[in-house]
Design a protein around this nucleic acid. Structure first.
Lengths: 243, 243
DNA sequence: GGGGAGAGATGCCGC
DNA sequence: GCGGCATTTCTCCCC
């Protein structure tokens, strides 16, 4: 493999993405400390100076450095070493490279942002627009608001003018979701000086423990799923070309 | 760029890592749904059939598929499409490739596992071995044990034979840590039928809100940091960092 | 497989 | 910067 240190450091100075496949060992020190012995890894340095080290399996990088890291590849005591320093966050990494398998630098043009559907935010939007999903006569006042009462998903009144707090979960609600709702309940009762406040967990399902805790606290549960606008995709993959 | 569909699908059948730099748009549907318009991306398919899609910035993949995904690259209506299907978890992705920048397949040998120091587990070990970090006369009985009382970091008796529950946090303790400890307290008092139980949060720091809640609950705080065995590494970096 | 909890969590938004 | 919270969280361990 033709590989030149000056060439690599030159690439670091450019606004490109570097892909280095190599055999290496790694030492990291920062928020914690880690050691990884010699093995083949994929090293990616992005244009924002994020570093990722990937093994041949697993979805998470085995080591990484955050955006804005400084890099320098040097020959040290006859060994190729990639020094990685992020001074502001006090994170340090040394990658000792014993063999370079391949080296690549890429210019990547991409200004697109992802659009995601089916988040908890989408769920609270849906409930806000279709209050009857909670119950007839529910009148939502606000959604996803950072009030002094806390970060409440949907907040409103029922037909008897009781305050209603709705906590949404896009997955199965667990006891932490119930605790979270209970915390809002306590807070808002104190701050508003009222007692007629109802709390509702809205989620596609709820665990047995969470349901028990919910009942103990006198709270309620509604089975509601996050919106999916394109169920069609799952049913008929062939129609994908329509986008 | 010389690029052959059969060659790519052949690589998929082998136990290697595939790196594809290309311009593409992406549609994902599974736990949620996402759309990403055309742009240059780095696509990695690992030997365990994990897929990662990276943009030129950011530490997280913009899209991904989990281990065990099935892949198939086909020419569809004159367009190159990478179909990704993970039937067991009901996740689907289509990557429409408008230009291939580079394609690489790598054999990677790596059986090493990372050793990490400074975790919460290390903290509880340290306290177990040096109980005086909590207070004189503290006698720990167990650490990190899944008892019927719950998952308690350190569990023991103080010099007056009160039960003591210690909850460790490697970072600043927040009110959720206090809630967690309070939950264990309630549980253990119920199950043991005793009332003389003390709860201690051990963390390098604690937020103002958490400290208030802690006091309200009658719990205690000890400022303890997770162990770092190689502070020397940080000191030695100074001379290396001079470049 | 579900539940519970940690993670070098990350990322977002608001104050 | 910190705080509070969601995440296609992921990962591990135990039941």
């Amino acid at each position: 493999m033709e590989f030149d240190i000056a060439n690599f450091n030159d690439a670091l100075g450019k606004n490109c993405v570097i892909i280095l496949a190599c055999k290496c060992s790694i030492h990291y020190s920062g928020r914690a400390e880690s050691f990884l012995s010699d093995g083949d890894r994929l090293i990616i340095i992005k244009s924002d100076k994020t570093l990722l080290v990937h093994q041949h399996v697993g979805s998470n990088p085995i080591n990484y450095m955050k955006e804005g890291t400084g890099f320098s590849l040097v020959l040290e005591d006859g060994r190729l070493v990639l020094h990685c320093r992020n001074i502001p966050v006090k994170e340090y990494m040394d990658i000792i490279i014993s063999k370079v398998h391949s080296f690549q630098q890429l210019q990547m043009e991409d200004s697109e942002k992802i659009r995601l559907v089916g988040s908890e935010r989408d769920m609270s939007d849906m409930i806000y627009r279709q209050p009857e999903l909670i119950e007839p006569g529910f009148r939502p006042l606000s959604r996803e608001e950072h009030t002094k009462y806390g970060f409440i998903d949907v907040f409103g009144y029922d037909k008897r003018n009781n305050l209603v707090i709705v906590e949404c979960k896009r997955y199965s609600a667990d006891f932490k979701a119930v605790e979270q709702l209970q915390r809002y309940m306590t807070k808002i009762k104190q701050l508003k000086g009222v007692d007629n406040v109802r709390g509702i967990v809205a989620a596609p399902e709820i665990s047995a423990n969470a349901l028990q805790m919910l009942k103990d606290f006198g709270l309620e549960y509604r089975s509601i799923s996050p919106p999916k606008f394109l169920e069609r995709f799952n049913r008929d993959q062939k129609k994908l070309g329509e986008y």
